[in-house]
């Protein structure tokens, strides 16, 4: 930012402090409460901090399939990210180099693709997935997630490829490199921030998704985190400690990814499509 801007007022700082508190206090409360014993959580007289660190809520998680859900979500996230990025790199490159679709036109296509009601698509997809015998399979779920991630990833990557000078790949191709090889060897490296942003977008989407996972999968062992956790909420409504501990465990990878890749997350939001 420019340096000649006058320093902002106390009011702006006060406003910013309130915003940070509103955003973070609910998470903080979850974290602190996950170390309270059931008696403390049930107590009428609520205290902010637990009287001592109680780990029973975390060990209670071992009685559930929680870690299985965690693994399932991780597998779907990795599979979806790899496939979606591969397809989106090809398509994004193709659109950047071969066609004349304008930036604004592409953005509208992406936004339009995002506007299709998920609940409309789930009904036919359920019957299709069922007839392909892919119900209860993480593969079926991955295929669906890939296609939902594609429009935005293609748009994002296309923009990054447009910024890579054509001369780079021409030089490589004169040296005898095929176009396909040139894409991976010389065009992709300068576009890596775009690839990272797309990957973060896909992971956030997969971690968030509930509707399709809940519909396509009904064996407990195959559930993803969203579905598994939602069912635990239904099952243990009076055992908040265990649920809060589960919430904390789910938050950890989200926050690690987020802390590392924060600038890519803002790139996603800047891209203008609701994740």
């Amino acid at each position: 930012m420019t340096t000649d801007r006058t320093h902002s007022s106390v009011w702006s700082h006060l406003g910013a402090a309130v915003l940070v508190l509103v955003a973070l206090v609910p998470f903080g409360w979850m974290f602190v409460s996950s170390f309270k014993s059931p008696a403390e959580l049930n107590g009428v007289d609520q205290r902010l901090l637990p009287s001592h660190l109680y780990f029973g809520n975390y060990t209670a998680l071992l009685d559930t399939n929680f870690f299985r859900y965690f693994l399932n979500s991780a597998m779907v996230a990795v599979g979806t990210t790899l496939i979606a990025l591969f397809l989106a790199i090809l398509a994004g490159y193709g659109l950047a180099r071969f066609t004349f679709v304008g930036n604004r036109g592409m953005l509208l296509i992406v936004v339009a693709a995002q506007m299709f009601p998920a609940v409309m698509l789930v009904i036919p997809l359920y019957t299709t997935v069922k007839s392909l015998n892919l119900l209860n399979s993480l593969v079926g779920l991955t295929v669906v997630y890939v296609s939902f991630a594609l429009p935005f990833c293609i748009w994002l990557l296309r923009n990054y490829f447009l910024a890579v000078p054509v001369e780079i790949e021409e030089a490589a191709m004169i040296d005898g490199c095929s176009r396909f090889r040139a894409l991976w060897k010389v065009v992709l490296p300068p576009a890596m921030p775009g690839v990272m942003a797309a990957a973060v977008f896909v992971v956030i989407q997969v971690w968030e998704e509930f509707l399709y996972a809940n519909t396509f999968i009904d064996t407990d062992k195959k559930w993803t985190l969203s579905v598994g956790l939602n069912s635990l909420i239904g099952e243990y409504t009076t055992d908040w400690g265990r649920l809060l501990a589960a919430g904390v465990v789910v938050m950890i990878p989200v926050l690690i990814v987020f802390a590392y890749l924060q600038r890519y997350v803002t790139a996603i939001a800047g891209g203008g499509v609701k994740g």
């Binding site: 940070v20 609910p26 971690w207 909420i233 919430g247 789910v250």
Partner: peptide, 28 residues
């Protein structure tokens, strides 16, 4: 605005958006 610790403020404010809805439901 030009804020003290603006990076931290921006990052914290986006957290509710990146957290899965099921966690939002659990917390609230």
């Amino acid at each position: 605005k030009k804020l003290f610790a603006r990076g931290f403020v921006r990052t914290s404010i986006i957290v509710p958006w990146v957290v899965p809805s099921v966690i939002v439901a659990l917390i609230w």
